[in-house]
């Protein structure tokens, strides 16, 4: 049994479903290097024509926001309804706006 340090690194996999869509996270794979990560991602996540393009990146390279900071980060947007077009009342009869 190998020790933990011998484990191939973990890669996050992003898949473009079809042309025109952005890449979306679908899961992760272990691989020795980036090329192998693409091959493993292809075998694991695209057996049924699920996509047309893959991105892989080392999981360790991701910096994520802390769930504990979610309120501080995202709630300030709640009281800024004037950022949405529906905030503004336009009289009937005015068109193309």
């Amino acid at each position: 049994m190998s020790d933990a340090s011998k484990e191939w690194p973990l890669w996050e996999v992003f898949l473009r479903g079809k042309g025109g869509l952005s890449h979306r996270h679908v899961g992760s794979v272990h691989a020795a290097d980036a090329k192998m990560a693409v091959e493993h991602a292809r075998d694991t996540y695209t057996r049924r024509m699920e996509g047309v393009s893959l991105w892989v990146l080392p999981s360790a390279a991701i910096t994520a926001s802390d769930p504990g900071d979610a309120a501080a980060l995202f709630e300030p947007a709640e009281d800024k309804v004037y950022r949405h077009p529906t905030f503004y009342k336009i009289p009937d009869g005015i068109t193309h706006i």
């Binding site: 933990a4 011998k6 899961g27 794979v29 272990h30 075998d43 057996r47």
Partner: peptide, 22 residues
């Protein structure tokens, strides 16, 4: 081959809880 894939989806989901594949 699908069964292998299912195993891999589940291992990688379980790894997000802090347990390594090894």
């Amino acid at each position: 081959q699908d069964e292998a894939g299912h195993g891999l989806y589940l291992y990688s989901a379980a790894e997000t809880l802090g347990t390594s594949r090894d």
